[in-house]
Amino acid sequence: MTAGLQIWNQNGVLMLDGTHRVGRFKGSLYLDGKVQSGTQAADLSSGTPFWSFLPDFLFMHINGNSPVPVVSISSTGVSWAYSNPPTQSYLYPITGWIFYGVFKGNHMSTNTTQLLGQYLTAARGLLQAGLEQLKVEDPQQYSDVAVVANAGGMFKIETGMSTAGLFEVNISIVDATGQSVNLMHTETGVVNH
C-alpha cells in the first residue's frame, strides 16, 4: 500500500506521489565573469545531482565573443570554467546564476507529452484570463492585441522562479517584426499589468 502524499488532477489521474522523482533545490552561486573557473562544495549525495544555468544575457557585444560556463557536478559539489574564447578582444563572459540540487526518488510516471499538455492547458487558461481582464480594463489595447494576433502575431509565455521564491509568469504578444508588448505579469497568483 502506498503511503504519504498523493496528488490527483481533476480527471482522477495520479500526478504526484511518494515514488515520483522530485528535484530538491540545494543552492546557487553567481558567476560574475571576473574569475575564469571555480568550485562550490555542496553535499549532493542524497540523490541524483542536477544543475541549471540562468544567464544574465546571451551576448554583450556585436562580435559575440561571450564565453559560456562549462559546468560539471558530482555528489561533492559544482565546478565550472569558462569556455575558451576565439579571441581575447572584446571579451564579455556570460554572467548569471548556477542553481543546483538533487533529484530524489524514481522517474515520474507521467510522460513528458502529458506534462507539456497540462502546461499548455494552464498557460492557455492564464492567457484567456489575462485577455478577459484586458478587455475590461483597456478595450483599446485589447483591440490592438486582437489585430496583431490575427495578423500572425504570437503570444510569448515565460515562466520562472524569482530569487525571492515567487513563481512568475510573463505573457506578451510579438508581432511579425519582432516587436513585443507585455500583456500580463503574475507572481504567485497576483496579477499586475
Rank of each mutant, 00 (worst) to 15 (best):
S109I: 06
T121W: 14
L120N: 09
H193G: 06
E187M: 08
G153Y: 02
Q179R: 12
L183Q: 04
S162M: 09
S162C: 02
L14V: 04
Y119K: 14
S162W: 03
Y90V: 07
V174G: 05
A149P: 01
P69Q: 09
A42R: 00
D32P: 02
N106E: 15
L31W: 03
G23T: 03
V145T: 10
M184D: 05
P139W: 08
L116T: 11
Y30G: 03
I73V: 15
V68L: 15
V13G: 11
M108P: 07
S66Y: 00
V181T: 15
I94P: 08
Q118L: 14
I98L: 12
Y142T: 03
H185Y: 13
L5M: 13
H20C: 14
G165K: 02
T159N: 14
P69C: 07
T188L: 05
E137H: 10
N9G: 07
M1Q: 09
V147H: 12
L91K: 08
T76V: 07
N65W: 02
P69V: 05
V68H: 11
V136D: 09
S172D: 09
K34P: 00
V102A: 00
L44I: 04
E187Q: 15
K135F: 13
W97H: 07
D32W: 04
Q179G: 06
T76L: 04
P49R: 01
P139H: 05
Q10L: 08
F167T: 12
P67G: 03
H20F: 13
P85W: 01
I173W: 04
G27E: 06
D43G: 01
A122I: 06
G153L: 01
V147D: 14
K104D: 00
G165N: 02
F50S: 05
L116F: 12
W51H: 13
G64F: 08
S180N: 07
Q36L: 09
P93D: 10
N63P: 04
G27C: 06
T2A: 11
F50E: 07
N170H: 08
Y142H: 12
S72A: 11
A176S: 14
V68N: 14
K156N: 13
F103Q: 09
T113Y: 13
S37K: 11
N111I: 06
L5K: 15
L54G: 06
G152D: 05
E158P: 00
N9H: 06
S83G: 14
I62Q: 12
V190A: 10
Q118A: 15
H193W: 13
K156H: 07
K156G: 05
T113N: 14
V102K: 00
L44N: 01
F53A: 11
A3D: 11
T159A: 13
P85A: 10
G130H: 08
S143H: 10
